[in-house]
Design a protein around this nucleic acid. Structure first.
Lengths: 221, 221
DNA sequence: GTCTATAAGCGGATAGAC
DNA sequence: GTCTATCCGCTTATAGAC
C-alpha cells in the first residue's frame, strides 16, 4: 500500500550509508540484523557497539565504516522495522467483508510477532522511551493511515456489518494484543513454557484473539 | 491478597536501604519516585544517577548515601512497581459473578495505567529486556497466582457462566490491552491528542474494552 | 546527612598501517 | 575494506571536610 511504503521510506531518509558493492550490502544486512537484536534487548543506551559488531562478525571500527555513528545505526534499524509494522494495516480496505478483513489483519500482525519478535520489541522500546526518532512519523503518515482505517470501519458500522463501537480504540486493542506476544515473550514463556514459535501455541493464541475480538464487534444475530 | 503481597515483598528482598528516620524515609520515597520516572524513560543504562538526584532535589553522592548503587536503586524501584501490578489480579475470585469480576479487574488495571503510567513502562522495559531482575518472580509466585485465576475461570466455564475459551490467553489479552495505554502513551497521544488522564478518553477506552472483551467471552443467550 | 572534589573505568569514535 | 592502538568524554562511585 502507498501510505505504508511511504511511511517506511520516510523513516529511511537521512540515514547516510556506505559502500554499494555486493559484499558491502551483505555486511550492512548482517549489521542491521545484529543491531535489531541488540538494541531491542538492551535499549539504545544499553546496547554496545562492540556487541553488535561481534554479533555481526566484524570489528568495531569496521562496523563504524558502514554506519558513521551509533545513532545512524539505530535509526537505520528502526526504519527497517517500521515496514513490517505498518504494511499489514494498509491491506485492510472497505471492499472486503469486515470479519474477513479484520481477522486477516489480526493474523498478519500475530505472524509478524512470531517471525520478527526483536523488531517488535525495538519498536516498543522506542515508543516507551518517548519516540525520539519516530515521533514525526507517528503524527504524520501513521496518523493519516489510521484515520483512513477508522473511516473504513465507520462505513461497516453504518452498513450494519459491525456493531456500533469505537474504531480507534479497537485498533489499539488489536495492536496491543498481537504485539504482546512479541514484546512480553519472556513473561509469556515464564508462565507457559512456550511461545508463538510453537505451532500449537500460535494456534491457541490466534483462536483466542479471533474468538474474543470478533465476537466482541460483530452484530448480534 | 496474600499471593500478591508476598510477590511484592519478595521483590523487595535483598535491597539494602539506609536511614530509618522520618526525613530519611521521605527522601527515599522522593528518590524512588524520581527513579521510576527516569528509569522508565531512559532504561537502566540510559538513566543517569545525576538526573535522578536532581529530580529528587538532592546531590548525587547524597542519593548514593540512601541507595548504595545504581542497581540497588533500580531494583527498589521495580519492587515498588510490582505491587501495583499484581494486587488487582488477586482481587478476582470465584465467589463473584464472572462479568462483574472480570469487568472490575479490567477497570482496575486501566486505572493503574492512568495513575501510574511510569511504573507500567518500567515494568514493560524490564520484561522486554529479558526480565534480568524479575525472572524469579515470574516463574514462581506470579505463575502460581495466574494458575489460580485460570482455575477460577475454568469453574465459571464449567458452570456455563462463561463461553468456552482459553483463560490464559484471555488474561494476556487483558494485560496487553490495559497496559497499552500506559506503555504506548506517546503513540496514543500522537494519534489522538489525548490520553487516559482525560476523563472522556478514559471512559471511551474503558467502554471499548468492557464491550469488546466481555461480549467476546459471555455465553450467547 | 550533605556537600565538593576526585578517582577509576568504560565505551564511542578516530588515526593510520596494511 | 579491515584491522590495532589510542584518545577523549562521560558517569559511577568514593574520600573526606563540614
Amino acid at each position: 500500500m502507498d501510505a505504508a511504503a511511504g511511511l517506511a521510506a520516510a523513516a529511511r531518509e537521512g540515514t547516510p550509508t556506505r559502500a554499494r558493492t555486493r559484499a558491502g550490502e551483505a555486511n550492512m544486512e548482517r549489521i542491521l540484523d545484529a543491531a535489531t537484536e541488540v538494541f531491542s534487548a538492551y535499549g539504545f543506551h544499553g546496547a554496545r557497539i562492540g556487541d553488535i559488531a561481534e554479533a555481526a562478525g566484524m570489528s568495531k571500527p569496521n562496523l563504524l565504516y558502514y554506519f558513521p555513528s551509533k545513532e545512524a545505526l539505530y535509526s537505520a534499524a528502526l526504519a527497517q522495522t517500521l515496514e513490517m509494522w505498518v504494511v499489514p494495516l494498509g491491506e485492510m480496505d472497505e471492499t472486503q467483508e469486515p470479519a474477513a478483513a479484520i481477522g486477516a489483519y489480526i493474523v498478519r500482525k500475530l505472524e509478524a510477532s512470531r517471525d520478527k519478535p526483536a523488531a517488535s520489541r525495538l519498536f516498543a522500546m522506542e515508543i516507551i522511551q518517548g519516540a525520539p526518532y519516530l515521533m514525526p512519523l507517528l503524527t504524520g503518515p501513521l496518523k493519516t493511515m489510521v484515520e483512513e482505517k477508522i473511516a473504513t470501519m465507520r462505513q461497516w458500522i453504518a452498513a450494519g456489518k459491525l456493531a456500533p463501537m469505537d474504531p480507534l480504540h479497537f485498533i489499539f486493542t488489536i495492536w496491543a494484543t498481537t504485539q504482546h506476544y512479541a514484546d512480553f515473550t519472556v513473561q509469556v514463556r515464564a508462565l507457559t513454557q512456550s511461545d508463538l514459535s510453537n505451532p500449537a501455541f500460535f494456534a491457541a493464541a490466534r483462536d483466542n484473539l479471533l474468538n474474543v475480538l470478533l465476537n466482541g464487534i460483530l452484530p448480534r444475530p
